[in-house]
């Protein structure tokens, strides 16, 4: 369903003598429909940049991203706009993912409006989504700063679900949350994924979390994918030194 070929993103810095940061460097992988690929790696290794490049939230330097056979990187602005709702992203900081000046109700209605859903249907759909992600109706009239991080991440999920996407990039969706809240959100994502047959790229630096969420794991180090395989293979028989370090780290605790 999703195939990434030779994807690279270099950031240049310096005006006279250009220096390049190879944030993502020649990355190849593919994800099957309904599968979850976990992406782990230390911070700054390029996970976020990779996720954003796939969705073209930043323009990659080189490579191909095939989504159902369509190369996303070749779409023009207008085609991209109509194509986009099929792919969604969940960000690390739930509080920053919502417009602070919009009530929860308006925030959830946004994607419906953009999809040109009839005005009279919107209110009902918003209610439905609010229940679906485990919020209660009284939350609809609050602002994001009046809700906790976990509740805001539920709102983000409701917005994403409103679009009926096929593919979701979740970039450390719980790293800003408490352990107990993390568990709630991860379980919610799992349930929704099963129910709606979603395809997921799940980014995290917590190997345990990725293990719980994913079918396969890709390990990223310095902008490259250094190891990829089924969850149990990675845990039992890590090849790359960094993966070994990650896996052994968990045993200490």
């Amino acid at each position: 369903m999703l195939e990434v070929k030779g994807l690279s993103k270099y950031f240049s810095s310096g005006i006279l003598r250009k220096r390049y940061t190879k944030a993502v460097d020649d990355v190849n992988f593919s994800i099957k429909r309904g599968e979850t690929l976990g992406l782990v790696g230390e911070s700054g290794c390029g996970k976020t940049t990779l996720g954003r490049s796939i969705l073209r939230l930043i323009e990659p330097t080189a490579g191909k991203v095939l989504f159902d056979g369509i190369d996303i990187l070749k779409l023009n602005k207008k085609e991209l706009r109509t194509f986009r709702p099929r792919m969604q992203m969940i960000f690390q900081d739930p509080d920053a993912s919502l417009n602070p000046r919009m009530k929860i109700r308006e925030s959830i209605a946004e994607p419906l409006k953009l999809q040109r859903v009839e005005k009279c249907e919107i209110e009902g759909k918003v209610q439905e989504l609010i229940e679906r992600v485990g919020l209660s109706p009284e939350h609809a009239n609050r602002y994001p700063h009046q809700l906790s991080g976990g509740q805001n991440q539920r709102v983000v999920l409701a917005r994403v679900l409103a679009l009926n996407p096929d593919f979701i990039v979740a970039d450390e969706p719980t790293s800003a949350l408490d352990v107990s809240v993390q568990a709630q959100i991860l379980n919610l994502i799992q349930d929704l994924k099963r129910e709606l047959n979603l395809t997921l790229l799940f980014i995290s630096h917590d190997l345990e979390v990725v293990r719980y969420m994913s079918d396969r794991i890709a390990v990223m180090y310095g902008g490259k994918i250094v190891e990829m395989g089924d969850v149990e293979d990675i845990f039992n028989d890590a090849k790359h030194p960094y993966t070994k370090l990650l896996v052994s780290g968990k045993e200490v605790v």
Partner: peptide, 24 residues
């Protein structure tokens, strides 16, 4: 991120500017 998520939902530039950036 909320501007990015708006873009992911297929919102156009003018819409984002008028509805999400200007009020802020």
């Amino acid at each position: 991120p909320y501007i990015d998520s708006e873009r992911m939902m297929g919102a156009g530039d003018l819409y984002i500017l008028g509805r999400h950036i200007l009020p802020n």
